[in-house]
Amino acid sequence: MQTNNGQVFTISSSDATAKGQVKVQGFLVLEGSIARLHISPSGVNRIQPRRDQLMKEGVVEKHADGLKFTRDYLFDSPSGAASFVLGQQSIGWTEWKTPQGETLSQVMRLARDEDAPILSESQQAAILEKHELLLADGKLPTTEELEQSYTLFRERFAA
């Protein structure tokens, strides 16, 4: 995962407010963030063990308004961090947002106009040319060879 120059992302709900940053190793929830105290039934098995661990280690403390992070904590992923904070299974790529309302996904992932081609015409031509050269050198299977392999696969593994 790439970083985004210290950009701070937030999650806000009625009972959770957290800030975090993308790091190469994962997603860092910042000190002072408040996680929802209660966990939804769908999240108990995955979230509760981590909460118990972080409470034991003193990373989070129980407060009247939720679980407060006493220091920064690095989660493996934005979704793991969002799930912990919101107390339910969450997709961090859409839950974490900039102050302008852009999702982490919009900021960090490649975005393009859906009508725009993925490759330019010159890139397409270069790929097709390379494909033809590899076929001519016998380094790629022909369409017929691929079809034979697919047929054999379906015969052996079809349900």
Rank of each mutant, 00 (worst) to 15 (best):
Q7D: 04
Q7M: 06
F9H: 01
I11A: 02
I11V: 12
A16M: 03
A16N: 05
K19S: 08
G20E: 11
G20A: 07
Q21R: 11
V22T: 15
V24K: 13
V24G: 03
G26C: 05
G26I: 03
L28H: 04
V29R: 00
V29K: 01
S33M: 08
I34V: 06
A35F: 01
L37K: 13
L37A: 05
L37Q: 10
H38V: 15
H38D: 15
S40G: 07
S40V: 15
S42L: 15
G43T: 05
G43R: 03
V44E: 14
V44H: 04
V44F: 04
R46Y: 12
I47C: 02
R50G: 00
R51K: 10
Q53G: 01
L54I: 12
M55C: 02
M55A: 10
K56E: 12
G58C: 11
V59N: 06
V60A: 05
E61D: 07
K62F: 00
A64D: 15
A64C: 08
L67P: 10
K68Y: 08
F69R: 02
F69I: 06
F69V: 05
D72G: 02
L74I: 06
L74T: 00
L74C: 08
L74S: 08
L74W: 06
D76Y: 04
P78N: 02
S79N: 02
S79A: 02
G80D: 15
A81V: 13
A82Q: 11
S83C: 03
S83H: 04
G87W: 04
G87F: 08
G87T: 06
G87A: 00
I91R: 09
W93A: 02
T94K: 10
E95S: 10
P99H: 00
Q100W: 01
Q100P: 03
G101Y: 02
E102W: 01
E102N: 07
T103V: 02
Q106R: 07
R109S: 11
R112M: 13
R112V: 13
E114F: 13
E114V: 14
D115W: 08
A116I: 06
P117W: 06
P117A: 09
L119Q: 08
L119V: 05
S120H: 10
Q123M: 14
Q124W: 06
Q124P: 12
A125D: 12
A125E: 14
A126E: 15
L128A: 12
L128Y: 07
E129F: 03
K130V: 11
K130L: 09
K130R: 12
K130Y: 04
E132Y: 01
L133S: 11
L133T: 11
L134H: 05
L135G: 05
L135Q: 08
A136P: 13
A136R: 14
D137G: 05
D137K: 13
D137Y: 01
D137A: 09
G138A: 04
G138V: 08
G138I: 09
K139F: 03
L140V: 00
P141I: 07
P141H: 01
T143I: 14
T143H: 09
E144C: 00
E145H: 00
E147Y: 03
Q148G: 02
Q148W: 05
Q148A: 09
Q148T: 09
S149V: 09
Y150N: 02
T151G: 00
